[in-house]
């Protein structure tokens, strides 16, 4: 069977600005694939090309084996798309929204009421089904969008920042939802800013920055590649500290964080921690705080781009 999503050399520019450049992605069937990147990285642009809303400038993209430019209707039949921005649905009730969209997916007329009910139930919106959309909270609106995305049991579910702006409870609901779909065998492409979300849900991630894939793999693979551990040091003199420890054998890489702290990638924190403190003491560099952690996806991003994900959107 063809991969769920396959792109090669995908490119898209808006006037002068190149939003996506040479994008190669492969999402296998059954994957929960995370597109991870700061604001403006090109996640939504990629997704809009995959959902046939935007024509690529060059390169190819196939969804379930169908080319997005040549066979868009085949692609549309197989995807469920939940947009980053909540879709405005005016004066309709939740149930009406879902039923109308079920008809737009050509589901058999007789089954629509049942299917709509099941979809609403899956996102916990059944109790609110007969209220008008305009009376829903932001999280409820998002959940309704999710319900609409899974109505026709798509082969590939495309979620653009599904938990954006949700409270903790609703975020967990979304995560549960993704987990359920995964068990049901669907392929999910999920764009997100939240590293913990990607870490938790995805079996593969591609980190995108400035329209290019920086690195891809499974979260654990990527984290392992970072090195064993990350030591974070807060100090008033990060530059001096960097100079004096840079040459140590156990240091793999040093990157300055956004708060003036240093992230020191090391093989073994147990060795590195006392060494950092000793060196600081020897050179009279005051250390305010020293901690260490297992590498996170944030460290992966930091290692590959030299910037922290939280900060990156502002730059570029």
């Amino acid at each position: 069977m063809s991969p769920a999503i396959e792109t090669a050399g995908l490119r898209k520019s808006f006037g002068e600005h190149v939003a996506i450049e040479g994008l190669d992605l492969t999402v296998e069937r059954g994957d929960v694939f995370g597109l991870l990147g700061p604001n403006g990285a090109g996640k939504t642009t990629t997704i809009r090309m995959l959902t046939t809303l935007l024509a690529p400038d060059s390169g190819t993209a196939r969804v379930c084996g169908f080319d997005v430019s040549a066979q868009p209707s085949e692609v549309r039949r197989r995807i469920g798309y939940v947009m980053q921005r909540v879709a405005y649905r005016g004066l309709l009730t939740g149930r009406e929204c879902v039923e109308i969209e079920a008809a737009l997916y050509h589901l058999p007329r007789r089954e629509i009421p049942l299917l709509a009910k099941a979809a609403l139930d899956a996102v916990g919106m059944l109790p609110h089904a007969d209220r008008r959309w305009t009376t829903y909270s932001g999280g409820m609106q998002k959940r309704l969008d999710l319900a609409c995305g899974l109505l026709h049991s798509p082969e590939v579910l495309v979620l653009d920042e599904p938990s954006l702006g949700l409270d903790v409870q609703s975020r967990h609901n979304v995560w549960e939802f993704v987990g359920d779909r995964r068990l049901g065998g669907a392929t999910i492409l999920l764009a997100t800013n939240y590293l913990d979300e990607a870490d938790r849900l995805c079996n593969k991630v591609a980190i995108i920055d400035n329209g290019r894939v920086v690195v891809q793999g499974s979260p654990s693979e990527l984290k392992r590649a970072v090195g064993a551990d990350v030591v974070e040091v807060a100090t008033r003199e990060p530059e001096r500290l960097r100079q004096v420890i840079e040459t140590e054998r156990w240091v793999k890489k040093i990157v300055a964080g956004d708060m003036g702290d240093l992230h020191i990638f090391v093989e073994d924190a147990a060795v590195a921690l006392p060494a950092v403190m000793r060196i600081g003491l020897e050179h009279g560099i005051g250390l305010e705080r020293v901690s260490y952690s297992q590498p996170s996806l944030d460290d992966v991003f930091l290692l590959h781009t030299g910037r922290e994900l939280r900060e990156a959107g502002v730059a570029s």
Binding site: I79, A87, Y105
Partner: peptide, 17 residues
């Protein structure tokens, strides 16, 4: 116009209609 500006049009266009 509203569908276009609020983004619902995109949702419609991603459907097999």
């Amino acid at each position: 116009l509203w569908d276009k500006e609020t983004g619902y049009l995109d949702r419609l266009m991603s459907m097999p209609i």
